[in-house]
Amino acid sequence: MEATKGSKPLVAVQGLTFFRDSRAIFQDLSLSVAQGSVTAIMGGSGTGKTTLLSLIGGRLAPAQGTVEVAGELVPTLSRKALFALRRRMGMLFQSSALLTDLDVFENVAFPIREHTRLPEPIIRNLVLMKLELVGLRGARTLYPAELSGGMARRVALARALALDPLMVMYDEPFTGLDPISMAVIVKLIRELNDALGMTSIVVTHDVAEACSIADYIYLLGDGRVIAEGTPADMRKTTAPEVRQFMAGLPDGPVAFHYPAPEYVSDLTVGATV
């Protein structure tokens, strides 16, 4: 796999195979994420995009293949080493996963308090800096229940940035947002990535947003990579699976109909009973 922006890839997945309840989610999947890039991982619902993030984060172990992050083989790490690696990864969950019993300030302060022994004034400044990045410095005393979906996601983003990670993984960051919140998140992902010198992995099925911010796109299907390339490459491609997904066509290689007996015979059987 060649990376878009030179240098060594930050995340390299090789020959990955993973089963869930004997169903193969991934088979011989390989991809790499270049340092400093925004890489989008796309695919329909149920293609295991979120599972891939769990594998990169070391929450699941592959049946076969390797997952390498920042030069470390994730599945072979001890729990301690894995936790040390995770301090350098941020993750944004689809549900935001904010701690409901803490306010916005304490949610962002949480990883700092857990992992450092910094004095209170420094923690305060760090938290306010992170909140300023996502534009929510004024919302510090609100509780998660009082936040809109878009604001909750921005708080979660501030929290993911709290320990200045090497990379941030976004799980469906555009789902369920109004157009304005969506535009804010799109802008934040790209700008923070460039301003803080991070690497970003965005798992999504929103074609337009992915194309607008990603440097490189992987399209998953049937447990493997069915297409990859820059947004421009992906738009130009003629492969039918890619065309169907990129253009959002209801029928194509991915059939509109769930496999079923032939329609007319199915109806006549029903009538005779």
């Binding site: 929450r59 995770r86 969950f93 689809q94 549900s95 996963a97 904010l98 409901t100 990883p111 857990e114």
Partner: peptide, 16 residues
């Protein structure tokens, strides 16, 4: 509920 709302997963990913 913390599990259902991914709060526990979130902590795991924050190395907690």
């Amino acid at each position: 509920l913390m599990k259902a709302t991914e709060q526990l997963d979130g902590m795991e990913m924050m190395a907690v």
